[in-house]
């Protein structure tokens, strides 16, 4: 093949490079986040549908301890802050700070999951199951376990990703890009919780 002189790239969409000044990994993670977000949108829309149909939806402030949930939410949001710090540290090639902040994030995630498990145990103790609950419409229990369960499974996945990231970072094998992508997923998981917290517990 004859060698061609490469035309100067006029715009970012002109080919030869990713238009977002980011590698394909980040593009793929963003696309995945949109997809995964729509999974929760499906669950939340179904929950909205069921709640509109329900004759009497249980009063959340009597079922849940909103202050306990506020603490849970605060813990999770704080872990997003530490994650952001980890990304900044990784960008500055500060390996020790990166590892430290990722570990702090993991700590926040584990605390959140623990509090979630305690809440589940508490409600199950009061007689809530997937099919029945003492407060009214049975679908209340179904959607509670479905939504928090699937969010919890995502937190768990995020924790596994973060553990790998921390391990790589401690061993000097992590890239700023890799930490940032793990961070994207973690922020997404937190954002989903904000929606669940607002739509299921508060509204």
């Amino acid at each position: 093949m004859a060698t061609h002189t490469v035309e100067p790239v006029i715009d970012r969409w002109g080919g030869g490079a990713c238009p977002f000044a980011a590698g394909w990994r980040k593009v793929m993670m963003w696309a995945f986040i949109v997809t995964d977000g729509l999974l929760f949108a499906g669950f939340l829309a179904s929950y909205g549908y069921a709640r509109l149909m329900a004759e009497r939806w249980p009063p959340q402030q009597e079922v849940f301890s909103i202050s306990y949930l506020a603490v849970m939410t605060f813990v999770l949001i704080s872990s997003s802050a530490t994650m952001a710090s980890a990304v900044v540290a990784a960008g500055a090639s500060d390996r020790r700070a990166t590892t430290r902040f990722v570990l702090l994030t993991i700590l926040g995630g584990v605390a959140f999951l623990g509090m979630q498990a305690y809440e589940w145990a508490h409600l199950i103790g009061e007689g809530a199951t997937l099919t029945h609950n003492p407060w009214g419409d049975p679908s209340f229990g179904s959607y509670f376990f479905l939504l928090t369960g699937f969010h919890g499974s995502h937190v768990l996945t995020g924790l596994i990703v973060l553990c790998v990231t921390a391990w790589h970072s401690a061993g000097g094998r992590s890239s700023a890009n890799g930490v940032e992508i793990a961070g994207l997923y973690w922020h997404f998981v937190d954002l989903v919780w904000v929606f669940i917290f607002t739509l299921f517990y508060l509204v």
């Binding site: 035309e7 969409w13 990713c18 590698g23 394909w24 593009v27 793929m28």
Partner: peptide
């Protein structure tokens, strides 16, 4: 989903030099 993620990332990121979206 995996296949779709791949196609989206590939088309956005891996076009040859000069292969703008409108080409």
């Amino acid at each position: 989903t995996m296949s779709g993620l791949n196609i989206v990332a590939t088309v956005l990121s891996l076009r040859a030099p000069g292969m703008s979206m409108m080409r």
